[in-house]
Design a binder for these strands. Structure first.
Lengths: 218, 218
DNA sequence: ACCGAACCAATTGTCGACAATATAGTAGTA
DNA sequence: TACTACTATATTGTCGACAATTGGTTCGGT
């Protein structure tokens, strides 16, 4: 389960989540215009609700808005991907460092369990690991940092955009086993409470991961 | 001049900027409740405008909102400060690295000029340097990274919160000259296009800066 | 044919009113 | 007195209508 606690109560929240999913999953195309009136009939809510959702999406860097003109879904470019992964490298590197420092022993143990369950799946050739498992792994470490700013930035913003790139470019292929090894080393560093190494390995891991996607865009 | 391009056209924008300033500068206290009706009379705009402004402030981590209850200005805590500076260290470190890589020669030259103008001020004992000058320096480097995600995160979000801490805790005292030396070394690394060193020095610089403020909160 | 100005339709920005929800206060009972 | 259920009030959530702005289109002039 990679969905987060996001307690959606209000209609505005629900519309926001729905709209975000539709954008990330490509049901609304990258670069498309977001007409407020159109969306308000489509999702059966008032324009105010749509407006609020679009504002939130803008804060998440999933749409761009110009005053008195309107909003468009961001378009996926090679430069955008590079910039996104540079930020990710920076933030997740810090997350790994902090996780090595702040995770409880129990959490570290759970992380090791997660890793070995992934090992079993990789061994059996389950492709399930690829998306769901990778996401779980990264989430676990980010949450382990115990830094709420970091958590919010990655969970509410960056990761959705990352997923948008992954989904719409067709996600990575044969990187599973090598990524698994990288995960293993990161967990090792965290288990040893080696902050510097954890950060360095995570940064490398994300750089590799970027190279893997980047080729699809050239 | 440390104000950014922020072309405010719409009334919603203006209200947002005004409200943000009032919060950062402490005219609205940390932890205070933000009543929509009250603010709408105070700023002479409709509740919808206030609502939009509050939403944006929430995205900037200046305000926390609970559904059906309301919004409060964030409160300034020691933990919050530490978390904020951890993120800043991570992002600005990356910014320095990218600036060393992506700044044009002209931009590097301008940065050196800025530094020597600061030197003159420090020599003359102008306390002006402290806030305005420091901000200029950091902005210059962040913009030099040419990474729009990075720029947006720092300029629209983190820096305002940083300033809020600085203003409301009374800003640093005798750190001017030592901070100047740190700036000098960072500029040197950028001039040499030494990405790794630039990142490392910037991270240290921010850590020192945090220690300086942190003592005020204990 | 080309350029500019004045209109026009469509979209966004703003507003006030109504509905739904939470909090505080009151009354009632054990 | 302490606790619960209920009610009243104030605040937020949602909506539809009106105002303002944009971009395109048409028309006229050179």
């Amino acid at each position: 389960m990679h969905t987060f606690k996001e307690t959606a109560v209000t209609a505005s929240d629900k519309t926001f989540f729905q709209l975000r999913e539709d954008i990330v999953e490509g049901k609304i195309l990258a670069g498309a215009k977001l007409s407020e009136t159109e969306l308000s009939t489509k999702y059966a809510v008032s324009r105010a609700i749509i407006r609020e959702a679009i504002n939130r999406l803008e804060s998440s860097h999933l749409v761009e808005r110009k005053a008195n003109v309107g909003a468009r879904v961001v378009s996926l470019t090679k430069e955008g991907l590079v910039e996104l992964y540079q930020v990710r490298e920076s933030l997740e590197g810090m997350a790994a460092r902090l996780a090595a420092k702040n995770m409880t022993d129990d959490e570290v143990q759970d992380l090791n369990k997660l890793l070995s369950s992934h090992f079993d799946e990789v061994k059996d050739g389950q492709s399930y690991y690829q998306e769901e498992g990778d996401v779980d792994f990264h989430y676990r470490i980010v949450l382990g940092s115990k830094n709420n700013h970091l958590i919010a930035m990655l969970m509410n913003g960056i990761y959705h955009l990352v997923r948008m790139y992954r989904v719409q470019l067709g996600m990575a292929g044969p990187r599973v086993t090598t990524a698994f090894d990288e995960h293993r080393h990161i967990v090792q560093a965290i288990s040893n409470r080696d902050e510097e190494l954890a950060e360095m390995l995570m940064r490398r891991h994300i750089t590799y991961s970027r190279n893997n996607i980047q080729n699809k865009l050239i």
